[in-house]
Design a protein around this nucleic acid. Structure first.
Length: 679
DNA sequence: CTAGGGTTAG
């Protein structure tokens, strides 16, 4: 750092003498001396990872000095330095100008291409190496194998394997590791395993590469088996092992998670990466509380989180709607000046969006210098989930104007925004744009958005036709979307078709069973009602009790339906009574038919079971300052009665109430909801 | 001059 700033101000020659004697220098001496550029000085500069500008200045000095310019070992260092500055073309120029190159120059050239993602060029240099009378060595092979790994080039990889055997280098540890990694990346785990088994010397990296091979192919159990095998060879899993495992640890079994946690705990020298991976394991397996717990453990262990840690933990905050926790992380990002960072800011946008803070999400978006498809998609789905479909659609157009190419996920976000806001025309339009213009093959998510869009807008027949003509096998979500649409629009005929298909698929989700038994009851098919109920019982499927979370201070408080266990319960119920009185003055009539949505019907008005969101809202009302927005997260969809109640409470108490249910956000303000009663 | 590894949207 010091070196660079000095170099900007004065010529490199002035500081040179000074550098030859010490690394610390005083500016006073610099101005007096007129040093001479020597090879040793050049080496010292080049070893300090100079930036491009510094490097160019030094290079220009070297060029005018015949002796230095013809020094090929200096040329090699220059090549390396330009490569580190992402200048493979300049590296190549230097390479071409150097006479009498030995294998080392070729190795550096190839590595420059690989590290700068010029894989074809790297392979080209390798393939021409023998025409220069040079034989690839134990440095060349790992490097060209990495090229094949990075570009999934199995064909060339196999050729190289052959050359390796011919050259008698197949017993070399580094070459062997390179082969394992190459085969693993190219989905050839069997071959990778054969190389591993054939090696007469193996280290942690050999095993880690094999772990990565299985993990990248989603073969989690085998990846774990390798971890066990390496232990038998008395090699301890390290941070690299954890990192190699990580691609496969989404939605895995509790046993596997425990295994990884035990491995993590036993690790003597964990390092930041292991912590990050362990947190990611929890986040990717729907264990956000454990993720946040481990994150706070980091602080206790004196380990400072980095950008990756934060980008990993933020989705957990989003999952829990842990606004305070998320905000703290945002403050940390600001304090540590970690932004601008694309991935991190994208994660912040999504976190705020999932906490119902559209304004904050938008602020981050507006202040970003660079935005990618993820940035836009996050904000589009944020608006979509809040029922601001117009804004979502406008954003999508702006995104196109900015020149970004939407991917299939971007289309999911805009299509689901349309379905949440009933934007039928726009939804149809974007579906057509996606398939016709961008040639994106629709996935089950897109079909599900379209069925939801058409069905909820009342076009049940069209929605059903859509299901019938889709090339994929409809899943529970598709039939579920159609069934709810049928219930909203009282279409018993298609509703029963959907119900029967849903029944055949027999999802292990309570929500659909409730929906099923309700429609069968409505159709008078009481035998089917009994069957559904008894299947639920025999399968041990519990009706999911309604539960609402609300964050207060640094804690998240949970309320179950009819909850009386809370310390402030009496106060909550008393306040609720007062509110009910005021609501009735405004014309509130309790709505008992909440069966339109996947909620339980058992709790009729006046009975003990008050829905959890009402309890959570009143709890927040009592415990926060007037005017503070209230954020609730519910594990089921909000029912009609609670929806009306929340609207009235927002009016009576002049509070903004934000309820996130399983499907979307409801922003209640001044007696209205952002969904416009369309949900 | 050397190999293996981490994060985001649905």
């Amino acid at each position: 750092m010091i070196v660079n700033s000095i170099l900007y101000k004065s010529s490199i020659l002035k500081v040179a003498r000074n550098f030859s004697t010490s690394t610390q220098f005083s500016p006073r001496i610099i101005k007096q001396e007129k040093p001479i550029l020597t090879e040793e000085l050049c080496n010292q500069f080049l070893d300090k990872n100079p930036d491009l500008l510094t490097l160019r200045k030094l290079h220009s000095k070297i060029i005018v000095d015949d002796q230095l310019n013809s020094n090929s070992s200096l040329g090699l260092k220059l090549m390396r330095a330009y490569s580190a500055c992402k200048q493979p073309a300049i590296t190549r120029q230097l390479f071409d100008e150097i006479p009498d190159r030995n294998v080392v120059f070729f190795n550096v050239m190839i590595r420059s291409y690989v590290n700068n993602h010029r894989f074809q060029d790297a392979i080209f240099v390798y393939k021409n190496i023998s025409s220069h009378g040079i034989h690839p060595d134990n440095y060349t092979y790992p490097c060209v194998l990495k090229t094949c790994s990075c570009s999934s080039n199995l064909g060339v990889g196999i050729q190289i394997h052959g050359a390796v055997i011919k050259a008698g280098l197949d017993s070399n540890l580094f070459v062997g590791n390179g082969l394992i990694a190459m085969y693993g990346k190219c989905d050839a785990v069997l071959e990778a395993r054969m190389v591993l088994d054939g090696m007469n010397q193996r280290d942690v990296v050999s095993w880690n590469s094999m772990v990565a091979g299985y993990a990248q192919n989603g073969r989690f159990n085998e990846a774990l088996e390798i971890c066990k095998e390496m232990k038998l060879e008395r090699l301890r899993p390290d941070a690299g092992t954890m990192a190699s495992l990580s691609p496969a640890i989404t939605s895995t079994s509790p046993e596997n998670i425990s295994f990884v946690k035990a491995m993590f705990d036993e690790m003597s020298d964990k390092g930041l990466v292991s912590w990050n991976v362990m947190i990611a394991v929890y986040v990717n397996n729907s264990m956000p509380n454990d993720a946040i717990e481990l994150y706070s453990q980091m602080e206790i262990h004196g380990i400072e989180p980095n950008v990756v840690t934060l980008a990993t933990i933020l989705p957990a905050c989003g999952d829990l709607s842990a606004f305070m926790q998320g905000k703290k992380i945002h403050e940390y990002v600001v304090r540590k000046k970690l932004a601008p960072n694309l991935v991190l800011e994208n994660a912040l946008i999504d976190m705020y969006a999932k906490c119902g803070c559209l304004v904050e999400a938008r602020k981050i978006f507006d202040e970003m210098r660079n935005r990618d498809i993820v940035t836009w998609t996050s904000l589009i789905s944020a608006y979509g989930m809040s029922g601001q479909g117009r804004d979502a659609v406008d954003l999508f157009s702006k995104m196109l104007e900015s020149g970004l190419i939407p991917d299939q996920i971007a289309f999911v976000s805009v299509l689901s925004a349309c379905s949440h806001s009933g934007l039928l025309t726009e939804g149809r339009h974007y579906y057509k744009v996606m398939t016709d213009e961008y040639k994106i093959v629709p996935r089950i998510e897109h079909f599900s958005c379209m069925v939801d869009l058409l069905g909820r807008a009342g076009n049940i027949d069209e929605a059903y036709d859509f299901v019938k003509q889709m090339p994929l096998e409809p899943n529970e979500r598709i039939w579920g979307a159609l069934l709810s649409a049928c219930r909203v629009h009282s279409n018993m005929e298609i509703g029963l078709v959907a119900a029967d298909r849903l029944f055949q698929l027999s999802p292990e989700q309570a929500g659909y069973y409730v929906l099923l038994s309700n429609i069968y009851a409505k159709a008078g098919r009481f035998e089917d009602v009994t069957t559904v109920r008894s299947i639920m019982q025999s399968k041990g499927i519990q009706k999911l009790p309604g539960c609402s979370d609300v964050e207060l201070g640094n804690k998240v408080y949970s309320f179950l339906v009819g909850d009386r266990s809370h310390l402030q319960s009496e106060q909550i119920y008393a306040e609720l009574d007062v509110l009910f009185g005021k609501m009735k003055e405004l014309g509130y009539v309790p709505e008992t038919d909440s069966a339109l949505h996947d909620v339980e019907e058992e709790e009729k008005e006046g009975h003990l079971a008050i829905h959890s969101e009402k309890l959570a809202i009143v709890f927040a009302l009592i415990n926060t300052e007037p005017g503070t927005p209230i954020r609730i997260t519910k594990n089921l969809r909000i029912c009609g009665d609670c929806h009306i109640a929340a609207k009235l409470i927002s009016k009576i108490t002049e509070r903004e109430i934000i309820v996130r249910d399983t499907n979307r956000f409801h922003h209640f303000r001044f007696g209205e909801c952002s969904c416009g009663d369309y949900w």
